[in-house]
Structure formats: C-alpha cells, structure tokens
Design a protein around this nucleic acid. Structure first.
Lengths: 235, 235
DNA sequence: TCAAGCATACTGATATAGCAGATTTTCGGT
DNA sequence: ACCGAAAATCTGCTATATCAGTATGCTTGA
C-alpha cells in the first residue's frame, strides 16, 4: 500500500481513501466494511478509521448499527426521491445565481465542459467514470459561478451521495436527447435567471427518473434479507 | 451532573448535551472548549467527547485547528450571506411543497403556531429562548408539511447553524411588521405554491438582514486577534 | 430432519496511556 | 522596563487493550 498520501491527520487520510473507494464503486452498495481490516490495511489504528467511517456515515454514504457492522448505504426509494427534492432546490438556486453573476470566462468554460460531457454520455464501462467525473465537474462549475461558497459546499455534499448510486449499471439505456447538457449550459449562459432556473429544474427531475431506473433492483433488498449486516460472505 | 440522559452511546450523549449548550448560547460564539475538561465534567473518556466535537464541527457549529484548540465558530459575513442563500433554496422548496401537499390539520396547526410566534416576537431576555424555540418549530412544521424527510433533515441542519447566531442580542430593534409569520402562514395555507414560494423567499431575505445586524460586531474579530485559539481567559 | 441452545468469533464502543505540536509563561540578558 | 529564548502547560491525535453486544455455526436433543 502506498504511503504517499500526505495529509494533516491519519483520520483525514482514511476518510479520503475510503470516500474515493465508495465513489468509484470499488465498495459497491451494501458492501460490509470492517474497521479492523481497514485499519491493518492502511497501517493505522482502529481509531482514525472509526472517525473516518463516522464522518462518512454522517454524510450518508455509510450506514451502521451499533456493535453489528457498517456497510455502504442501501438507499430507499423515498430517500432517493427526497434527495432529488433537495438537489432541485440547491441546483436551481445555483443556476439562478450563475445566470446572474457568472463571469464571461466561467460561462465559456461551462459551455465547453458541457460539450465534452454530452460527447461521453453514451459511453459505458471504463469511460463511464470519466463521464461521471466530468459531469460532476460541470455541476461544480455551475455552483462556483454563483460565487457562494456555502452553496457550493451544500451541492458538493449532495452530489457525492448521488455519485454512489450512479455507479450501478443501468438496466436498459433509454434514449436521451444527445445535447442535454449543452442545451442546459447555453440557457444558463445566455438567458434570464428565471429561464435558467426552470431549465435546471427540468434537468434535475430528469436525473431523478434516470437514477430511479438504475436503483430499481436495490429497493427491495431491505425486505428480503432479514440478516442485515451479514458477516459471512454472500454468494 | 445528572446521569438521567439515556442514549445509545456516550458519544451521542455528549453530542446532544454540547449541541444544546451551544444552541442555547451557554457556550457563546468564540468560546474555547477543551476535550479533557468536558470529558471529566461529563464523566466519560476523551474519546466520545472527541467524536461529538468532530460531529459538531462538521455541522459548522465548531471550528478547530489541529493540536491548537476548538471553539464555537465565529462566522464570517460571507458565510452568513451564503448560509442564507442555501436556506432560501431549501425553505422556498419546502414552502412550495407545503402549499401543494400539506393536510388540512397541518395547515391549521401552522396558522396557530404563527400567531404564537408573532405574539412573542418582541420579547427579550428569558422569553427570547421561548420565541426562538417556537420559531424553529414553525419552520420545522413547514418542512414536515412537505412530507419529504431528506428536505426536513437538510432544513433542520441549516436552521441549527443559524440558531447559534440568533442568541446574540440585537443592537437596536428595528420595527418589524407585527404579523410577519401569520401573513406568511396564511399565504402558505391558502395561496398557490408559486405565491407561497415568493412569500417565503422574501421572508428569508428579511431574516438575513436581521441576522447581519445582529452579528455586525463579530465580523471584525478575526482580524484583530491574531492569537486565534486563546487558552487564557480573555477579559 | 429440524429446531433450540450455546460457544465462538466477530462487530463497534470505550478507557487509558503516551505522543507531537501549539500556546502560554517564565526567566535571563540588555 | 523591554525583548527573546527556553521551559512548562495545554491542545488534539494515535496506539493498545478491554468491554459489551451481535451474527454465525455447531452441538444437542427431539
């Protein structure tokens, strides 16, 4: 294991590493994680790992039961729907601000970024992570264009949760408009804040449908397995 | 110290106690807190206290520097403004949902609550905490009327941060319309979701002005004292 | 064959001890 | 009196060990 990641504290290091694993799907939804195993793997005590896991749990990426176990959170349909209600509120606010105060260079970069995202939107497999990463960057740039740090932070946290869900493959790819993000970017850059808000609202509501389709198979898991935090390997 | 507070874990207990103290203003803005002192006071090890403090820091109620100290967060003007941008996004979303889906009993309770809040709005001193508590409840009820748990959670977290700021006394009470909350509640209960959204937007923007006036004296603190985490008592 | 009970191995939670860095205080020199 | 360096004290951070609750599997009895 590489020791090259230098951070202020061990718990911060563990946090970054584990978060990355979850977001990249290396730890899939429902995967059980053990504090001790991760501690020996990262070459540190259980304590920094515990702090990192607690933080990830507070952010909604993990769930745990006292003295039973910790696993990558399995979302409920209501949670996903609710998550996108919050997301809509935040992203619409960001879109309005962007349309009002973003600089010319920020607008130019957004449109270029949108073109790249649309170009990658149909890719699957390895290129999908590139797409997800760029898509995330697109929304971050919109938030940054509003020049409001707390809003950026709120959107970032919100987005991270959804990233977990987008790693699961989609059952059947419904055909989407090939210029979704370019159209959105163009409106944010050239139209009024009111128009921008409505465009973003529709964009988010569309994303909700997409995500629901992706997670369909996970929504019943909670019922079937009464053994919630299985320690033995399921196969 | 009372041991009557029964919770799942010690760290949860410490979290609840400390959060309450901060929210009630017993730990004023800028107050330095020591893990060890709190640990002995609460009769537990430093570890649960550390976890509680870490959580409170992630929620924005505390701030710390590694190996230097932890204190109740001193807000920046930009942070306050940004906070209310987020708050506006969330509360407006909640207002729209409330106007659309709240039940008749929820609407009735909201209007009654609003009347009580307005009646207490001019009180100071001890009654102020009652007002703050009811005001918080009012906004929570609005969020609950939308029947969307994640949105409720987001608003709750957002509101908690602002509670810290509202504990500080206001320099000079500018006269406010005496029926602010009753008018807002009436609109949420009887008008369209669009009208409700706009009413809430104005309500939040007004709250921002109020808060900025309250915190004016804190905004320069960061510059003056270079010794940020003073351990000796300042007087 | 199956179900209940019990032992074992795991989980997270907590206490204690000691470390490293930051702050404060003390003390010596000018 | 003033200033700077060293010592003392405080801070948060981490490792180790132990405790208590949970899941699992094996044993035992019907």
């Amino acid at each position: 294991m590489k020791e090259t990641l230098a951070t202020a504290s061990l718990s911060a290091e563990a946090y970054i590493i584990l978060r990355e694993r979850i977001l990249r799907g290396e730890l899939p939804i429902g995967q059980v994680v053990s504090r001790r195993k991760i501690a020996v793997e990262l070459g540190m005590s259980m304590l920094p790992v515990s702090e990192a896991l607690q933080r990830l749990e507070l952010e909604g990426l993990l769930e745990s039961r006292p003295r039973a176990g910790t696993r990558v959170k399995i979302p409920t349909e209501d949670e996903v729907r609710g998550h996108y209600v919050v997301r809509e509120a935040l992203e619409v606010q960001a879109a309005k601000l962007f349309a009002e105060v973003a600089s010319a260079s920020e607008r130019a970069e957004l449109q270029k970024l949108a073109a790249r995202v649309d170009a990658l939107s149909t890719k699957t497999g390895k290129d999908r992570f590139l797409y997800l990463s760029l898509h995330e960057k697109l929304h971050r740039r919109i938030a940054e264009g509003g020049h409001c740090q707390p809003l950026c932070d709120a959107i970032e946290k919100n987005q991270v949760l959804a990233s977990t869900w987008l790693c699961v493959p989609r059952p059947k790819t419904t055909d989407e408009p090939p210029r979704r993000h370019q159209d959105l970017a163009a409106i944010l850059c050239n139209e009024s804040s009111k128009t921008a808000a409505e465009a973003m609202r529709k964009h988010v509501q569309n994303a909700l449908k997409n995500t629901l389709a992706r997670l369909e198979s996970y929504f019943q898991i909670r019922e079937t397995g009464k053994s919630v935090f299985a320690r033995s390997v399921k196969h």
